[in-house]
Amino acid sequence: MSRLYGAVRKFYIALIFLFLYAPIATLIVLSFNASKTRAKWGGFTLKWYQSLFGNDIILQALWNTLAIAFLSALIATVIGTVACISMQNMRRSTRSLIMGVTNIPMLNADIVTGISLMLLFISIGIRFGFGTILLAHITFNIPYVILSVMPRMKQLNPSTYEAALDLGASHIQAFFKVVFPDILPGIFSGFLMAFTMSLDDFIITHFTKGPGIDTLSTKIYTEVKKGIKPEMYALSTIIFVSVLILLLLINYTPRAGHKKAR
């Protein structure tokens, strides 16, 4: 009876993983398919990866994607962390209000965020391009940083900051020597989360990019409209793998940041 139960349990889990990962597995397999049609397996090849890295337009898009992801994550991390520090010193009621307000953009549909940012940029007359994408990404990244720094902030013993002052440290010294190391894992995972979100984004980028600049996701979208080329499978595989690695990093950093007792 219990063996049957165990088998059913395993089958169920296998089914869930199958549904979740079958599409991606298909994509990854096809990216190594030598045959140009999707219908049959023509042998293993890396030529799609080769031609992908020989394609300047795609490499430019990759560079844009990485630059925007890195810059927007960095700036959002600074802004989000400073916001958390000040929120920590607010009264409880004000803090939860602000927390709610910063959470809303995360739940908001991307298309709404994208269109409203586009309208905002038009109305204040900013030229669309790298700058507008960066601004848009910073905007939607800030809540993710706050979400990951705030719990760390709440765990802080408020007395440690005062203890540092008591021992002669200035406010700046007390922050960087005592508070900052304690919230660093939160800041780091906030940065990675923001980086991933930015890497991932299509809709908001689509509405705020303007002509003449592309990130990987918008590039893939335009390419697919012309007909799907196997290079795109290779590119998508690369994106998937990088996001996967980042996610693993995010999940393992908080523990890694906590020094074990010797």
């Binding site: 007395s159 440690t160 005062e162 203890a163 002052l165 008591d166 002669g168 200035s170 005592v178 190391p181």
Partner: peptide
């Protein structure tokens, strides 16, 4: 006078050691 300029020290209720 701010705390860091006073010639006295405090032992806090929950120790407040620097855990890192």
């Amino acid at each position: 006078l701010p705390p860091n300029k006073r010639n006295l020290n405090t032992v806090f209720q929950k120790y407040a050691l620097f855990t890192h």
